[in-house]
Amino acid sequence: MSMNELIKNLRGIWARAYVRIVGVNREPSWLIFELFFPLLPICSFAFVYKSMNAPSDYLGFVILGGAMTAIWMNVLWGMAAQFFWERESGNLTLYMLCPMSTMAVLVGMALGSGFSTFFRVIITFMIGKLIFGITLHVASYFWLFATFILTIAAVFSLGMMMASFFLLYGRDAWNILTVFMEPVFFLSGFYFPVKTLGYPLGALASLIPITLGLDAMRQLAFKLGPDTAFLPVKTEILILVALSALYLAGAKYLLKKLEYIGRREGRLTLRWQ
C-alpha cells in the first residue's frame, strides 16, 4: 500500500469513527441501552456465584467476562452487522463506490464505538470493585495489556470476516449472527473458565479469539486464575497472534471475494432482503 493509499484509508477510518463519536454525544440514550442495561446480566451472573458463596475471584471472572462482552457485542452489532443497516440506508452503495478499503470503514466503525465500549468496560470493573469487592492480583501489567490488545486485534479481524457476509446477505446473515451471542458466551467461557468445558470442546472454542484471551487475562489478573488455566499464557498469546494474522488475511480475502460476488449477482445494492 502506497503512502497516499495509507493516508486515504486513515482519513476514512477517522471519518467513519467520527460518526459514532458524534452519535454518542448527540444521542445520550446510548447510556441506557449500551451501558446501564447490559451491566444487569453481568451483575446477575455475579450474584449466581455470590448466592453459592463462591470465592470472590469467581465473581472477578464474571466481571472480566462481562467487560469482554462489551467488546464482543461491539464487534458483532457495531461492526459486522452494521453493514446491514448501511445497506438499508443506502450508504453501503456509497462506501462501495469510494476508493477506500472496506476494512477501513469497518475499523472506523469499531474504533468509533471504542469510547462507549471503553466506558462500559471501566464501569463494569468499577461495579466489580464497589459492589462485589473484586480484587485484582496482576502478575504482569505488560502481558495483561498485550493480551488484551491481541485479543481485540483478533476479535476485530473475526468481526471483519463476519461483516463480509453482509455484502451478500441481509436478514438471514443478521439472524445467523445472533447464534454468536449466547452460544459464544457459553463456549468462550465468558462466565466460567473454559477449562470447565473439557479440552476437546475448549480447543474448538479456542477458534473464537476471546476464549483464549479471557483465559490468559484471568490467569494474569486473578489469584485463582492460574488454578483454572486452560493453556499456559505464553501458548495462548502465540495462538492469539496466529489467529489475528489468520483472521485478518481471511477478512481481506472474504471482503474482496464477497464484494465481487455481490457485484456479479447484483446484491450489493439490494435492499429489504
Binding site: 497516499n4 486515504k8 482519513r11 476514512g12 460518526v19 458524534v22 440506508s89 452503495t93 456509497l94 477506500m100
Partner: peptide, 25 residues
Amino acid sequence: SGGENCGYGILTVAENLWMFTQFYG
C-alpha cells in the same frame, strides 16, 4: 441517485459532506 438518502441523520450537512470527502482522501 435522485430520491435516495445518503449519510447519517445524526450528522450535520457539512459533517456528512466532509465525511464523504475523507473517503476520497
